[in-house]
């Protein structure tokens, strides 16, 4: 049952991912991408990471995609019907297939191993995923977390500077 559900959602994810690449109109691409993001959020839930699923929907599908759509609308990018919207189709495809082949080969070659942690599904369900995330983030990864805030600040300043009328 779970497996069937997985394959169903995976099919949707791959299909909408294909649409992202294929669609002539950027707005369609963007909507397909949102669809993919939702599928990924479903996978996160299946992987017992509900907090990640939540911010996947909130941040990606919500904030970032809205921003992208907003820019598309702002620039009034209609469908590129009148001209080619792709280039080097063959080269790109060969590269993609090569990449896929490589990663498949890599994944199927062996079992992922490493230090097994003590976070079991039961523990996550008992304590709650959000609390676990919070504990880890604000103890072990506090410094990177703070650095991330600086990165975001820089990005905001950069965006403002770049988008100003007179650069």
């Amino acid at each position: 049952m779970e497996k069937l559900f997985f394959y169903l959602v995976a099919l949707v994810a791959v299909g909408s991912g294909f649409l992202v690449v294929k669609c002539r109109n950027p707005v369609n691409s963007a909507l397909a991408l949102v669809n993919t993001f939702f599928c990924l959020a479903i996978f996160y839930v299946m992987l017992h990471a509900p907090f990640m699923a939540a911010i996947q929907v909130l941040v990606y599908a919500g904030a970032i995609m809205v921003l992208i759509l907003f820019v598309i609308m702002l620039l009034n990018l209609g469908s590129e019907a009148h001209k080619r919207f792709t280039h080097s189709l063959i080269g790109g495809s060969i590269m993609g297939v090569l990449m896929l082949f490589l990663v498949f080969f890599f994944v199927n070659r062996g079992e992922p191993t490493g230090m097994r942690g003590n976070i079991t599904d039961g523990l996550v369900d008992k304590i709650g995923h959000t609390e676990l995330m919070g504990r880890t983030l604000f103890t072990e990864f506090l410094l990177p977390f703070e650095i991330t805030s600086i990165l975001l600040l820089v990005a905001i300043v950069g965006a403002v500077i770049l988008a100003k009328k007179e650069v």
Binding site: A13, V14, G17, F18, V20, V21, T36, T86, H87, S88, L89, G91, G92, S93, M95, G96, V97, M99, L100, V103, F104, V107
Partner: peptide
């Protein structure tokens, strides 16, 4: 891997 390759192809073409 499939999604990553799709993205790569998209970037390239």
């Amino acid at each position: 891997a499939i999604l990553f390759s799709l993205g790569t192809v998209g970037v390239l073409i």
